[in-house]
Design a protein around this nucleic acid. Structure first.
Lengths: 250, 250
DNA sequence: ACCTGAACACCGTTCAAGT
DNA sequence: ACCTGAACACCGTTCAAGT
């Protein structure tokens, strides 16, 4: 994990270094910005370097060894503030709600980065120990101890963080086809033409569900957020865990 | 969506074409195999072409326009069998369980492809209309109609499919660092050294949670599956939806 | 209809060399 | 300590041309 960048301690910058004067935080911030503009799929280290007015090798010097390490830094920088400003003086079930509502809010602030958090395993775990402890502590207060802690934790995190990952799954890079129609156009048409004979319930529910449920949509949660669906999920989980607590709450 | 390949209708293959004789299904199958071996991050169209003993351009001819279209074909080919062999003569809640247990089983058969299903929006929706109808129909029978259908559907699919996406999030491409240690080694050590002063609950629960909960693991669900956590989640959702059905079940 | 071969504009990553 | 510049081995995608 040697990145060469050991925090600012009033270093004297000399020569060319002084003129450029980049640090890891700036590289990470610029990367997040670029991903936000062009999307994760189109993100490139060389383009990032160009934007920073710097040689590609500089990225490698500031961040660890590879593109994947930059991704890990990005994840860490976003989840780093996850446990800040939480109110610990609430009933355990409300604390759980608070934690995951905040998680969703944070990720929604950087929707393009969501796949990194949800679909990649490397996201510097140390930064998240506070978060884990917070959740375990709420569960503990709710009566979950020993063996019961693990499945409860996983059901919550997997279900809720997983929801956000799917909600913010990026749409395809939209280039119009030969007839000038985008994938969005085509998909919207297909959904509208759902055969009522074959799929009676789907067809009947179209006004309510078209572009607003997971499989039948052509815009991501960054454009059409799933607030109430997430809150229902959160409610089902927290209330359910409350109802079947293996030990009396403390 | 012109792919040039309009299903086999007893075509007479001539010249070089006869010798190679590739079709879309074979390309997709080979791609799935290759992703399974080397991982999604390392997947390349050129390598796929080499493996098939064919020029790179051939992939473009059989599949639509770009790499993303191949991904969509892969997703479709995997989710295509999702609604096969389902037992429709069960209570609605058991039907829901069946659907999502099958979803997880299917994706676990191709863990490396999981990010496509969970973290990319383009996965040819038409193939999944059966699946959507199945879920809507179960919910309908459970008393969910009109407005209530959408959030219930989204909570289920987002929570459960999202869980599987996170469960199977791929680990980093493991190359040992300068001291010959992999990311897995380093991460395992860090977790083991969790400070009991700062994180008392986490430290105390380590034997139960180390490498077995979402944030504190270094192996994916492909190696260490989260069966009971998924079943807990499924149970909380289905039981919860049952308890708060807006209309009497039919 | 299906495939080749070459070409174009890009990548990620490494490394010796500069200040 | 921080950065440049060039080099290497790869990509995805397109297109004219072959059979």
């Amino acid at each position: 994990m040697t990145t060469g960048n050991d925090e600012e301690k009033g270093k004297v910058l000399r020569g060319r270094a002084a003129a450029v004067g980049l640090n890891k935080n700036q590289v990470v911030a610029a990367a997040i910005a670029q991903i936000g503009e062009k999307g994760l799929a189109a993100f490139s280290l060389r383009e990032l370097a160009r934007k920073l007015g710097v040689s590609p090798a500089v990225i490698y010097w500031h961040v660890g060894g590879a593109k994947e390490d930059l991704y890990a830094e990005i994840s860490a920088s976003i989840t780093g503030t996850l446990s800040e400003g939480l109110d610990a003086d609430m009933p355990w079930d409300d604390r759980l709600r608070q934690v995951f509502l905040k998680y969703r809010e944070l990720v929604h602030r950087h929707p393009a980065v969501a796949p990194l958090l949800g679909a990649q395993m490397k996201s510097n775990g140390v930064a998240n120990l506070d978060w884990v402890e917070t959740i375990l502590s709420a569960l503990h207060d709710g009566g979950y101890r020993g063996d019961a802690l693990r499945p409860a934790f996983n059901a919550l995190v997997g279900g809720l963080a997983g929801f956000v990952t799917m909600e913010l799954a990026p749409p395809p890079v939209s280039k119009p086809d030969s007839e000038g129609e985008t994938w969005q156009d085509l998909f919207a048409k297909r959904v509208a033409q759902t055969d009522p004979e074959l799929y009676p319930l789907t067809a009947a529910a179209l006004p309510e569900i078209s572009n607003r449920i997971f499989v039948l949509r052509w815009q991501s949660g960054a454009e059409i957020p799933y607030n109430d669906s997430f809150e229902l999920l959160l409610d089902l989980l927290v209330e359910g865990l409350k109802a079947r607590a293996p030990a009396p709450p403390s």
